[in-house]
Each structure stands twice: as C-alpha cells, then as structure tokens.
C-alpha cells in the first residue's frame, strides 16, 4: 500500500489522534480549571471515536439481530465505550465539584494564581513556625 492509500485507509486513527492532541494541549496549556475539564472531555471523546471506528466493519450493520444472516459491526467496543461514557461523566462531576470547592477556598479557579497563593501561604507558615 502506498503512502496516500495508506493515509486514506487509516484516516480514522489520525482524526482521533489530532482530536486527542488538541484535548491534551488544552489540559496542559490553559490555566483555567474548567477549561482543563473541557479539554479532558475532548480527549475522552477522541478515545471513544478511536474505539468505535475500530469496531466498524465495511458493509456491516448495527449489531441488532433481525433474523437474517448479516454482517455486523463489532459490538464489543460499543459496550466498552458505553461504560466509558458513563464513567467519564462521573469523573467530570467529581472534577467540577472539586473546582467549586477550590473556588470557595481560593476565590479563583486559575491554576497560576492558586499556586501563587499556595507559595505565599507556605512562606508565612515557614516564618511563623
């Protein structure tokens, strides 16, 4: 298989990887905690896409038995991703609850400002203790 054909036959993986890289970039480059969680969600959906596209069979149908012999797409990735979507919401909820608490404690949800406050607090503690 030559270069162009290879890329065309594997475009689903490349698309997932590009989305995943974007999500990862948001997580590591942005200071706002809510935006980090949005990035994490983007990352997650890219992984879902990777799995679902791996389960696709050309000419296959949705894995529901109709009585006729048919070619089905692979149901196993679908099951795994169903579980992953729900677990993803659970982690998002925990993350957002933590952010709400951080907002209460610090008054901001920007990572760099929180770090500055933490350092100032440590210096105070070191001086008094």
């Amino acid at each position: 298989m030559t270069g162009i054909d290879f890329i065309l036959a594997h475009y689903n993986y490349s698309a997932s990887i590009i989305l995943m890289a974007l999500g990862f970039y948001i997580v590591i480059s942005r200071g706002n905690l809510i935006k980090k969680i949005v990035g994490l969600n983007l990352f997650q959906v890219s992984v879902f896409m990777l799995y679902i596209s791996m389960g696709k069979v050309s000419g296959g149908t949705a894995p529901i038995l109709t009585g006729k012999p048919e070619l089905f797409s692979n149901p196993l990735p679908h099951v795994l991703i169903l579980t992953a979507i729900v677990v993803g919401v659970a982690t998002t909820a925990i993350g957002l609850a933590l952010i709400v608490r951080i907002k209460d404690a610090y008054g901001v949800i920007e990572e760099d400002e929180i770090l500055v406050m933490d350092r100032a607090r440590e210096q105070l503690d070191a001086r008094s203790g």
Binding site: I52, G55, G60, F72, S73, V89, T92, L96, V100, K103
Partner: peptide
C-alpha cells in the same frame, strides 16, 4: 459507525448531562 447504543448514550449523557453539570459549575464559579 453503526454504534447506535453509544450514540444515544453520548447524546443523552455526553451532550446533555455533562453540559448541565458544566453550566451548574459555571453558575457557581463565574
């Protein structure tokens, strides 16, 4: 991609519930 079960879970939970959670958090944090 033939994953109908995943699609409706994503639409209900990913697009619906997650967005509501985010909006709730935004209301509390600005």
């Amino acid at each position: 991609l033939d994953a109908v079960d995943v699609a409706f879970t994503e639409a209900a939970v990913g697009a619906g519930l997650t967005t509501i959670l985010f909006l709730g958090a935004l209301a509390l944090t600005g």
